[in-house]
């Protein structure tokens, strides 16, 4: 079962299912990189709401996916990191670098709207 990627206007939305395997992560990265170009998408939301933990492998993979998406010309945003997951990540010393994060899908799309409308004026 691979990670579903939906198209919504000029955005792509990837909803991570619980505990994806390494190959599912890889496939999602490839799919996103491909479709961003094919569909001329301007933003990508990766929704991790259902993940009950993010370890160093998942954090690194999310970073790689976001960087790839950016190189392909779209704005990446990661949404839905749960309170316990966020706290555990910082205690482990895991970061997502300068990738944008938002509370949920709705906020993520609103942020992409703002970035694409005003340019990257966000803090």
């Amino acid at each position: 079962m691979s990670i579903p990627i939906l198209r919504q206007g000029s955005y792509l939305i990837a909803s991570i299912q619980s505990s994806p395997s390494d190959s599912e992560w890889r496939e999602m990265g490839q799919q996103l990189a491909e479709r961003v170009g094919k569909l001329r998408s301007r933003g990508v939301v990766v929704d991790v709401t259902v993940l009950d933990l993010i370890d160093s492998f998942a954090a690194r993979t999310l970073r790689e996916i976001a960087q790839t998406v950016k190189l392909r010309g779209a704005e990446p945003v990661i949404v839905g990191i749960q309170p316990d997951v966020a706290f555990s990540m910082v205690q482990l010393g895991l970061t997502l670098g300068d990738i944008e994060t938002e509370l949920d899908l709705e906020e993520g799309m609103a942020m992409l709207d703002a970035i694409l409308r005003d340019g990257r004026t966000n803090v």
Partner: peptide
Amino acid sequence: LQTVDAARLMGAR
């Protein structure tokens, strides 16, 4: 600092 970072991961400044 960890609290600030964790809040940031959830999309809050």
